[in-house]
Simulated scan of single mutants.
Amino acid sequence: MAAATMLVACSSGGVSDASQKGACAPGVTNDSIKAGILYPDTGVMGTQFSGYRAGVTARFAEQNAAGGVDGRKINYIWQDDQSDSGGSLQGARTLVGEGAFAVLEYTSFSQGSAQYLDDQHIPVVGVADQPLWGDHDNMFTYTFVTDAGRSTTTLADFVRQQGGTKAALVVTYLTEASKLYAAGVRQSLENAGIPVIQDDIDSTNATDVARKIIGAGADTVIAASPLDLYTGVLDAAVSAGHPVKVAVSAVSYDPRVVAAYGKRLVGTYSQLTFAALERNLPAQRRFLQAMAAYSPEIQPAGQNSAIAGYINADMFIRGLKTQQGCPTRESYMRGMRSITDYDADGMMVQKINMTADHGELDRCSDFVRIAPTGDRFEVVNPQPLCGQRIGNG
């Protein structure tokens, strides 16, 4: 972790000249800026988030190789929230205490630290796991997918496209985020006239779950559950002569999944908040090149959490580029709110207005499926699918 630096006061206007010696804001000096990273490196969610820090490392190193931002190189310190809301608060306190200018966060437990970071006026850049991200002006995200009482038509439109008529939810309620995901899926499907059954899965017996789905006559499965359970349910349905027509998993877009389960999950769909790497866009090629150069230990590179880390770091950098001279936390947040067209240089499926879209659900998604060969993903539609927002608020 970076050593502490002597702090000197900023000018009364909140922004000092870049030539000023020392630091003018916590974590900021003439030639460096220190970010804090908060994510679950261990605990029940550790494996799912394992590539996050590597993605951040790759994007920061890429920027530093180009001279940094306004002459400042970016470094970071990090904390493990241990897949726990209490760990989230402790980690946030440690990062702030060690002088992080802002926090980059990817977790399922942001409720633990959100109010503390707001009270301390710390910018937070990350992936919104809960609706509270829309309630705090210091929090900035490139994706907002769950909110109580609200959803979008996007998933239901896709299910209809693929011929689904009745759906079963296979959700393991490990976190508040999974509960909100299930509620949003139900609202989207039922708004489109697609009946939804069996959303109270709390079983590790895949055969039992499949029997209930078959008994209800569901031809569609939407899952936010461990892949062992999800795969077992699909296997059991096929063995019983009831193959699922449309199967969507919230955690299947990862090349490690193809390696471990590919043949058993042929045709499984994933809904993405960013453009699928299979589109081979220039920004995606840069991501893969940066991962190979600066985070080669992550193999394969295209893990969902690594993509999230890279985009989060890019978003943090975009905010820094709105600043002149020496940024303060307040001026940085004003700069972030001035951004009207953020798309991670083409990695996103839509441009984001950091003010108008704050707390608004994503309307657009990319969809991929595991190819018939079982060894890769393939894009489903020529373009991402965009629906409409529905529900209260």
Rank of each mutant, 00 (worst) to 15 (best):
A4P: 05
M6Q: 11
S12E: 13
V15C: 10
V15L: 12
V15N: 13
S16K: 11
D17Q: 14
Q20P: 00
A25L: 02
V28Y: 13
T29V: 04
S50N: 12
G51H: 03
V56W: 03
Q63R: 15
Q63S: 12
Q63D: 03
G67D: 09
D70A: 15
Y76N: 04
D80S: 06
Q82W: 03
S85C: 03
L89E: 07
L104P: 02
S110F: 01
A114P: 05
D118M: 07
D129C: 05
P131Y: 05
P131M: 10
L132A: 03
N138R: 10
Y142H: 14
V145R: 12
R160W: 00
Q162W: 00
K166H: 11
V170F: 00
Y173M: 14
L180W: 08
V185I: 09
D199L: 03
V209D: 11
V209R: 08
R211Y: 05
G217A: 09
G217Q: 11
D219I: 06
T220F: 06
D228G: 14
A236C: 03
H242S: 15
V244P: 01
V257E: 10
A260P: 04
Y269V: 15
L277V: 09
R279T: 12
R279N: 09
P282D: 09
R286T: 14
Y294A: 05
Y294T: 07
P300F: 02
G309S: 00
D314I: 08
T328N: 13
E330H: 09
M336Y: 10
D345Q: 15
M354W: 15
D357K: 03
G359F: 07
L361E: 05
F377D: 01
E378P: 08
